[in-house]
Structure formats: structure tokens, C-alpha cells
Amino acid sequence: RQGFVPAAYVKKLDSGTGKELVLALYDYQEKSPREVTMKKGDILTLLNSTNKDWWKVEVN
């Protein structure tokens, strides 16, 4: 499932696989259909980080 999360809630990881991955630093509950819920410690695939406030991710 793809959607947006606050950029301040995730940290980029060095995956070494060519995929950009991020680590969820905090729990986040989606507040609109365009967002996704994540739990602290989740590893997500980063799809787009051009917006400084909201990053598009895919929940694996």
C-alpha cells in the first residue's frame, strides 16, 4: 500500500540494495486516504521525497 507520511517521522536508511528505505521513528495513524499508518520500527520503501514535509512511501 502506498501513501504519504510526515518526513519528520522517518529516517533514510542505507540499504545497499538500490531501493531507498526509511525507518519509522514514531507511530503514525493515517488521517486521510492519501496517508498510510506505520508503527515505530517499520521499514518502508521510499518512493518520493521531493516534498520536504511529506514523503511518499510503500508499506511492505
Rank of each mutant, 00 (worst) to 15 (best):
R1Q: 08
R1G: 05
Q2F: 07
Q2R: 15
G3F: 08
G3P: 01
V5C: 04
P6T: 01
A7G: 05
A7R: 11
A7C: 07
A8Y: 09
A8N: 13
A8L: 11
Y9H: 08
Y9C: 13
V10H: 01
V10Y: 00
K11Y: 08
K12N: 06
K12W: 08
L13H: 05
L13Y: 08
D14V: 13
D14E: 13
D14I: 12
S15A: 11
S15P: 10
S15K: 10
G16R: 12
G16Y: 12
T17G: 15
G18C: 14
K19Y: 10
E20Y: 10
E20D: 13
E20C: 15
E20T: 14
L21R: 11
L21T: 09
L21M: 11
V22I: 07
V22E: 00
V22A: 10
A24C: 12
A24D: 00
A24K: 01
Y26R: 15
Y26G: 06
Y26P: 00
Y26E: 11
D27Y: 04
D27I: 02
D27R: 03
Q29R: 10
E30C: 14
E30K: 13
E30V: 06
E30L: 08
K31W: 04
K31C: 10
K31A: 10
S32G: 11
S32R: 08
P33F: 09
R34H: 14
R34M: 13
E35A: 06
V36L: 14
V36G: 02
V36F: 11
V36T: 05
T37L: 03
T37N: 07
T37G: 09
T37Y: 04
K39F: 08
K40N: 04
K40V: 08
K40I: 06
G41T: 02
G41H: 05
G41C: 07
G41D: 06
L44Y: 10
L44P: 00
L44N: 02
L44S: 02
T45H: 12
T45Y: 12
T45N: 09
T45G: 09
L46K: 01
L46Y: 02
L46I: 06
L46F: 03
N48E: 15
N48P: 03
N48F: 06
N48K: 06
S49H: 10
S49L: 04
S49G: 10
S49Q: 10
S49Y: 08
S49V: 07
T50E: 15
N51D: 15
W54L: 03
W54R: 03
W54F: 07
W54H: 03
W55H: 03
K56Y: 15
K56D: 03
K56G: 05
K56H: 10
K56M: 14
V57L: 03
V57E: 01
E58T: 06
E58Y: 05
E58F: 05
V59T: 15
V59K: 12
N60K: 11
